[in-house]
Design a protein around this nucleic acid. Structure first.
Lengths: 260, 260
DNA sequence: CGCTCTTGTTTCGCTATGAGAAACACTCTT
DNA sequence: AAGAGTGTTTCTCATAGCGAAACAAGAGCG
């Protein structure tokens, strides 16, 4: 089959067909040679040969002798390479640019290394007079909006381990009492986002939402941050809606099922 | 390149090459045309044409004009299809068969539908005199080893929601007190596995460990179960080692990073 | 700033590959 | 037991995919 009006397409026909087969299997689960042939309009001997190639490389498996075909472990292995953490900024960058444009503030992507938060990408907002480059910088979990997202969503014993090490005070507003922080984190779980003001640095505020991966785990956070005179408790919930939408879009690109 | 001494291989050459390119990108991240050409021993115009095909279908992206190539969102979408829950039994089946052979008891794969545990696959152990087919059967979360794995690993407010509905007594050994169950579940989190005996049915015992996916979320449990005179508190920890190893192998096949 | 080198991209002619037709083998259904 | 349907294999042929050569663009160096 040809799907282009050009005499010679730049794409490789048989690779195109093989990808179509993979997509049929992703959508339909275990399927036979004949239904694939009918759906794609390709001869069943061709389908068979392409499946044999995909099977030889582990992208496809046959569930019994002469049985149906389904996606194999090799696809999961490829995806594991595709979703490695530090490539997250590549998939999220266009969404962050759109968000920065939308809200006018700086947008960061932050990951959790288990002990601290690390900013891996940043888009400067239009409202910024001066720009601090946060990329590569570490920050404590308890004082930043993104850090509070990580603390809120992690398992209690993992969080307890962190709290047991003590909480360092950064400003007069820093919460250093474990019980009070737990209360605050319960609110983060209830709302689905964190809002932090003056806790890490006087005059600095932020709104953060979790980025989830295929299995639902939190792999990063998207944060809108700026001066606390612009990011106030009055407009934080409106800002949060934009941040949550961006986090959902990024999560979807990382395999998290789309919310209906 | 030809990797077979036969005159004509059954696999499709160009599809084979395209998959090799995907695997290079999964391993190396963003790479250029020339390094891929050198690593695979394929002409760079061929690599370019194959990359163009993969890019057209979304499996590969170029990070800037004339820039390096990397895996695209399309691979994650394929993997989302590959890791759907009910296909889990296919990836886990060989590991369960090996585990059943190893420990001599029946092995089940159980998923959590949010309210109850459901067995989706079963391998009968050699020590079984009679065999009960658990596949398709539902069981409560608080009385079974797998159910306790799910309760232990879920977020506290989700668990609270379940506990608030009340716990039904099945035997004299069923724990129906929420605080006592929470203590038990804390032990499950500490050990990484659950051991349940006589709580669901007198004479029935089991050891269960969580199966995790790419993002770390618990998607299922692998359980060894049998009569309580064979699965005792004495041999449960030894049995648990085998179960944990099987759960880790299944988790890895579902994209969870291999523990070093 | 200009030149050189490297790499991504494009074009073209040729042949080895991938296509479909036909047939075979196996399983399921009646 | 026979027929239908589907997975698998073989064979011939047309063309798609290959590599060589050349071009275009960007990076690095003097």
């Amino acid at each position: 089959m040809s799907n282009t009006s050009e005499t010679r397409s730049t794409t490789v026909h048989s690779v195109d067909r093989a990808i179509s087969i993979l997509q049929v299997l992703a959508r339909r689960g275990a399927v036979g040679v004949t239904p694939i042939s009918e759906e794609l309009g390709v001869h069943k001997s061709t389908v068979f040969r392409l499946l044999a190639t995909l099977e030889a490389r582990g992208l496809v498996e046959q569930n019994s002798s002469r049985g149906h075909y389904q996606l194999g472990y090799g696809v999961i292995q490829l995806a594991a390479g595709a979703t490695r953490k530090h490539d997250l900024s590549v998939t999220s960058r266009p969404i962050c640019m759109a968000l920065a444009d939308e809200v006018g503030e700086t947008v960061n992507i932050v990951i959790n290394d288990g002990e601290e938060a690390i900013t891996i990408d940043q888009v400067i907002g239009s409202a910024e007079i001066t720009s601090v480059n946060w990329v590569g910088q570490r920050s404590p979990l308890h004082t930043t909006a993104s850090g509070q997202v990580f603390l809120a969503m992690m398992r209690p014993e993992e969080r307890q381990h962190i709290l047991d090490r003590g909480l360092e005070r950064y400003t007069e507003e820093t919460v250093v009492d474990s019980e009070r922080l737990e209360t605050q984190l319960a609110e983060v779980r209830r709302l689905g986002y964190a809002y932090s003001v003056d806790e890490h640095e006087i005059g600095l505020a932020g709104v953060a939402a979790p980025i989830r991966s295929l299995g639902g785990g939190v792999i990063a956070a998207v944060v809108v941050s700026g001066p606390s005179f612009r990011i106030t408790s009055e407009n934080a919930s409106e800002l949060a809606e934009h941040v949550l939408a961006a986090a959902a879009a990024i999560s979807e690109r990382n395999g998290f099922p789309k919310a209906e």
